[in-house]
């Protein structure tokens, strides 16, 4: 297990290095420091001022190769900073990026964590329900609704949700955020409802398939033959045995709870990490953007490893070697 973990982590590290190399190519070789400086200092700034900004921010150093001092290149600096988690300052406004991450992670978790938990419970619950009532009107209607839910873009749900709950019924604020725990449900009601609705279709379809596959197995027939009730079979036997495919979907998503939901946060003006990413894109803030992509890749690798480990926890037959 330990050897496996070390090997897996090493693979992950190589992947992350690859991502960093790609990031460098994208942000340093494609975009020029002038692009960044112009956005930071303003359209009207004369070339001399842009040059000042560029040298103040160290973008005038050699990019890849510096025969005099190998360590003093943008490439070396990029890897050094990312790997040591010393992210430096934003290109747009010189704010330390770590401060911004620290401020953004709370609001992001406020959006994603309850959504994730509720999505999981309701998704599994509903799919157990439709699987239990397979081939009845509930199942058929569930399938239709799920396919409908999967087919509609989240953007439409967001705009529709804002229109319905914020504008037409006037139940909740259209957008905004307040860190006060008592006010969080009020501001996040629409994002939660929208997120739940948008994600539920796919989840229920997937879990239903998994559950139906399980209900056809021998142990279910045996349980039934022994007089075990359907509800008990579903919750005690089927659910437990269906955990592996569910975990694949669930554990891999956990690290991304921290990186936020880009569209939702942007549309509802929630100052989370997703929103920071959008701001960075708008402001040509490549320093922040690099960090966000890097964190995304770390989250992905972490999610993969965590999924593997979780298999051993729910299924004693799985051994990681």
């Amino acid at each position: 297990m330990l050897a496996y973990l070390i090997r897996r982590t090493a693979y992950g590290f190589v992947t992350v290095l690859g991502v960093l190399a790609l990031l460098f190519a994208l942000f340093f070789l494609y975009a020029t420091p002038q692009d960044i400086a112009r956005r930071a200092v303003g359209e009207k700034a004369p070339p001399e001022v842009l040059q000042r900004w560029i040298s103040n921010h160290g973008y005038d150093r050699p990019r890849v190769w510096n025969p005099g001092n190998f360590g003093d290149t943008l490439l070396a600096d990029h890897f050094r900073r990312m790997l040591s988690f010393d992210f430096g300052r934003s290109d747009a406004d010189d704010t330390p990026i770590v401060d911004r991450l620290r401020r953004g992670v709370g609001p992001s978790l406020c959006v994603t964590l309850p959504l994730f938990a509720a999505g999981l419970v309701i998704g599994v619950g509903l799919s157990l329900l439709v699987a239990y009532f397979r081939e009845t009107y509930i199942d058929r209607m569930g399938v239709v609704l799920c396919v409908l839910g999967m087919s509609v873009s989240i953007l439409l749900y967001i705009i529709g949700g804002q229109y319905l709950f914020g504008k037409l019924l006037r139940w909740f604020p259209l957008s905004g955020f307040d860190p006060d725990p008592l006010l969080i449900p009020r501001f996040l009601a629409i994002p939660w409802l929208v997120g739940l609705f948008a994600g539920l279709g796919g989840e229920v379809r997937f879990y239903r398939t998994v559950f139906l596959e399980e209900t056809g197995r021998d142990y279910v027939r045996t349980a039934r033959a022994k007089g075990c009730g359907d509800a008990r079979i579903m919750t005690r036997h089927v659910l437990r045995n269906a955990l592996i495919p569910i975990l694949t979907q669930v554990v891999v998503a956990i690290p991304f709870l921290f990186t936020g939901a880009i569209l939702t946060e942007s549309f509802f003006s929630i100052p989370g990490l997703g929103s920071i990413t959008v701001d960075a894109i708008h402001a040509n803030d490549f320093a922040t953007l690099r960090v966000m992509v890097y964190i995304g890749s770390l989250a992905f690798v972490a999610g993969q490893i965590a999924t593997d480990v979780s298999y051993t926890l729910v299924d004693p037959r799985v051994r990681l070697e």
């Binding site: 705009i159 804002q162 914020g166 504008k167 006037r170 604020p173 259209l174 957008s175 905004g176 942007s266 549309f267 509802f268 003006s269 100052p271 929103s275 959008v278």
Partner: peptide, 16 residues
């Protein structure tokens, strides 16, 4: 002053 990124939401809140 509230940061409001989408102008549809901003405008609807203005109307409200």
């Amino acid at each position: 002053l509230l940061v409001e990124k989408e102008d549809i939401a901003t405008f609807n809140k203005f109307l409200q």
